[in-house]
Write a protein that binds this DNA or RNA. Structure first.
Lengths: 80, 80
DNA sequence: CTGTATCCCATCTGATACTG
DNA sequence: CAGTATCAGATGGGATACAG
């Protein structure tokens, strides 16, 4: 939600393998939540950006973040 | 989110089997999102109600419902 | 009524190697 | 860099039968 992201940046940031990441990106693309932009440079560059439909999820995400920060203690994820 | 629910009511309402429903209820209970109340009547009655932590998810759910009704056409779920 | 136990198949996921 | 191919293990889910 903080702007377009490159494949490699997502891969570095997220705790999933390349195969899973690619699968998720394809799903999100299929649901029209993100758009894939390929730049035929060398080396190749691919960026993923939210569509309007994806951007519209921001309110949901923010509501989740409020709930999360209030009820989930990151230093003690084991407790409920 | 519309009040306590009996096991049988959830089972009738939701498109999942009893095994899965029980599993989900146990997970939610483990995360302290719902509370299980058993009434030792005959026949037995069990109700599940949201905790405060669960109730606090209401804003998230409402944000989701707004997003959903705006971007997802239930009569054409196949399109993205 | 509210579950549990068992069997079985589909899907998800990770690790690894490879490609344009 | 941005993936794809392949294999194997883990997990999810349904159907059915049974139990307190």
């Amino acid at each position: 939600m903080s702007g377009p992201k490159r494949y490699s940046e997502l891969k570095r940031t997220l705790p999933i393998t390349g195969k899973i990441l690619t699968g998720r990106l394809r799903m999100l693309e299929g649901e029209n939540l993100i758009l894939r932009h390929m730049y035929p440079e060398i080396p190749m560059r691919v960026e993923y950006a939210l569509t309007e439909k994806g951007e519209a999820m921001r309110q949901m995400v923010e509501a989740f973040e409020r709930w999360f920060s209030q009820y989930i203690d990151c230093h003690r994820m084991d407790d409920a």
